[in-house]
Amino acid sequence: MSETIATSDRRALAPTLGPARGPDSVLPVAMDGVGYTVDGTTLLEDVSLRIRPGRLTAIMGANGAGKTLCLRLIQGLLHPTAGTLSHASGPVSLAGRRRIATVFQRPVLLRRSVAANLRHALKIYGVPRVERAAMLSDLLDLAGLRALAHRSARVLSSGEQQRLSIVRALAADPDLLLLDEPTANLDPYATRMIETLIRQAEARGATVVLVTHDVGQARRLADDVIFLNRGRVTEQTPAGTFFDRPQTAEAAAYLAGRLLL
């Protein structure tokens, strides 16, 4: 896998990244006063946020803060029990949901080869048959998995599986790519490859939302940061502001590595 974009200052490059998305784009995505309660337990409360096109948003916060739940709501896998979630074009629709792709923390790969996993995704996403071979080849190169194309996806290393998951999501040519802790439990080398892939996803025009516990990763990648604490958004701010001048004691403690109890 080649690293096509320098890691030093992606923000400066951001305006040139990726093709412009059409008028049917789901972005921006907005949550207004969203809550999610299950069996009497409130997991998210009065969450309002904006996912803006072309900007990588990191969602941070302690375990159980509601980060992954936010992603599931945005993807449409769950529905808010309070408030509204909307896409640029209006209420969430099936067509809109198909413009959003999610990569889960633990990749769920089909019991097939690497190439067959990608072929399945291309078919599901409605890519015309004549275009699939070229796209498959492109995605294998993007993930750096060409040599492993015929190996069972389930015997790949964790990093390889996560790269496959990401390019499978890119097969949808999504407006919005949701990544749920994609580098959890990966070593620095595998993490670097995933981060390179994230940049390449942006270069292809996908807006990325990244849930991460890794403060260093958020510093390297994020344009905006949303900080969640116990189901509430306590900060939504440009990354520079968040890291230099956190506005809440919880965010300051989190960044300082203190235990949030």
Binding site: Q75, L77, L94, R97, R98, A101, T102, F104, V108, L110, R111, R112, H120, A121, I124, Y125, A172
Partner: peptide
């Protein structure tokens, strides 16, 4: 149980999910 969330996130139809599961 294992595939559900992944397949739904891909916007798969019920028929598509059935065929995927039968094959795998």
């Amino acid at each position: 149980q294992e595939y559900d969330e992944q397949l739904r996130s891909m916007g798969i139809t019920t028929t598509g999910a059935v065929l995927t599961l039968l094959y795998d």
